[in-house]
Every structure is written in C-alpha cells, then in structure tokens.
C-alpha cells in the first residue's frame, strides 16, 4: 500500500523535463517536491495526476498500475497553482462538481451531495460562503475552496502544485499548519510541489530535492538538512 515511482522520464519538444526519477513513499505520507523552476517537479506532479503522459517508467500506487489508468479514474485530487476554480459556478457548485459528474450508478443523491458540501465548507472554514462566486473571494479563500473541491472526491492521492504560491507570507504560514492538519485528518498520500525549501522542510515527512529533471536527494527533512549529499543540495538549503 505505498507509492513507488520507478524511473519516470519525460521529454518535451526541446528539453528533457524528467530524467529517470525514482522514489518510494509509504501510504499516507506527506511528500514535498522541492527545487528551482525548471527542475521537473511540476511535470512529475502532472504525470501523477494524469494531466501529462510519461515517456517511460512506471508508477505503482496502492498496488494499482497508476500510469495506465485514465486521469479521471485515478481519483487524484489536484490543487492548481492558480486554483482553476470554475468561474461560472458558486463555491458550493465548485465543491460539488466531482460528485455531480459521477455516472448515475455511483453518484450520491442530491441531499447527500448537499450534506457533503456543507461538511467540506465547514472543514475549510468557509461555512457561509457557499453561495458566493470565486471572483468574490480573496486569494486565501479561493485556495481553500480549491482544496475542498479536491477533497470532495475522496481522493486516493492529493496533488498540490505550489498551492500557496500566489499568497502573501502571513497567509502562507497560517495555511501551512492548517493544510498539514487536513492531510492528517483525511489520511491521504499528499504530494506537494514548492520552490520554497523552508515551506517544504517545515511541512513534509519526506523531501525530494530536484534539479534538472533528477532527484538530487530524497529523505526525511532532518536527515537531508543534516547531511546534504551534493553541492547542489547544500547550496539550495543555504540559499
């Protein structure tokens, strides 16, 4: 019941984005991919979410051949950097989306969906904002709606792409603790992409430091910090 990424590679037209990335993480881990822009961390996340196809390599997750599953069957809750909320839907409709689009046989009833949305709104502390539109919310509120929407599908895996990238420092710090709390409650495996090493080391159980499409070092934050294996890692940590 764990996540095994085995030599995943991806080339874009002009440059290699991932050069054989491998790592293993236990079920329920909070894993951070950290590195400068262009290091391939977002590409790896998008491959796990099914939004990008790997050229080669394998991923096994909870004993499923993960990469051979279509994106919409993976139940990978994806939180986008710019939130990607549906502008024309209310907050409640945004959160309900993943349940509404299920095939009739597995779709919860109207009242079940309503209860679930209310529950999630409470979880992300937006109880009274269900009827608002995304354009009427602050950045931090939008971020929380995006997370609630991803959690609504009861994801097997939570994928977060620079989720706090567009927020100011104070809100970031608050959301960090809160996100970690939500992760622990939901019991999912979470993978978190950030270029901010302080954020990564403060939140994650495991950190993968990436550079130029490769993992430079992978391990528990304390171990990586104590014993940087390459010059890049020690430079990156002291930056």
């Amino acid at each position: 019941m764990s996540l095994i990424i085995d030599s995943v590679s991806k080339r874009f037209a002009r440059f290699p984005a991932l050069n054989g990335v491998s790592l293993t993480a236990p079920q329920g881990a909070f894993l951070a991919l950290v590195g400068p822009s262009g290091s391939g961390k977002t590409t790896l996340l998008r491959i796990l979410g099914g939004l990008e196809e790997a050229d080669s390599g394998q991923v096994r997750f909870a004993d499923m051949n993960w990469l051979s599953m279509p994106a919409r069957e993976r139940k990978a809750g994806f939180v986008f950097q710019q939130y990607a909320l549906f502008k024309h839907m209310t907050v409640a409709q945004n959160i309900a989306f993943g349940l509404e689009v299920r095939p009739r046989a597995t779709r919860p009833s109207r009242s079940e969906i309503r209860d679930r949305v209310a529950e999630l709104l409470k979880l992300v502390q937006l109880d009274d904002l269900g009827k608002r539109y995304p354009s009427q919310l602050s950045g931090g509120q939008r971020q929380r709606v995006a997370l609630a929407r991803a959690l609504a599908i009861e994801p097997r895996m939570l994928l977060l792409d620079e989720p706090f990238g567009a927020l100011d420092a104070k809100v970031r710090k608050e959301l960090r603790i809160w996100l970690r709390h939500i992760h622990d409650q939901a019991g999912v495996t979470s993978i978190f992409v950030t270029h901010d090493q302080e954020e990564a080391f403060a939140m994650a159980d495991l950190v993968a430091v990436m550079n130029l499409g490769k993992i430079e070092q992978y391990g528990a934050p304390a171990d990586v910090r104590r014993d940087p294996r390459t010059k890049f890692v020690s430079d990156f940590l002291s930056a």
Binding site: E73, F80, F86
Partner: peptide, 25 residues
C-alpha cells in the same frame, strides 16, 4: 486549459467537461 484539467482530475468525462465547463465559459 486549467479549468478543463481541473474537471478531468475531478472525474469528468470529455463531454461532461465540455458541457459543464468549456461551454458556460
């Protein structure tokens, strides 16, 4: 393509994504 990608990751089919997300926009 952000909203379409979000819809796909939430389990929507191609047609559902078009009908519920692309067209209203």
């Amino acid at each position: 393509r952000d909203e379409e990608e979000a819809a796909t990751s939430l389990g929507a089919s191609g047609f559902s994504t078009f009908w519920r997300v692309t067209l209203p926009n």
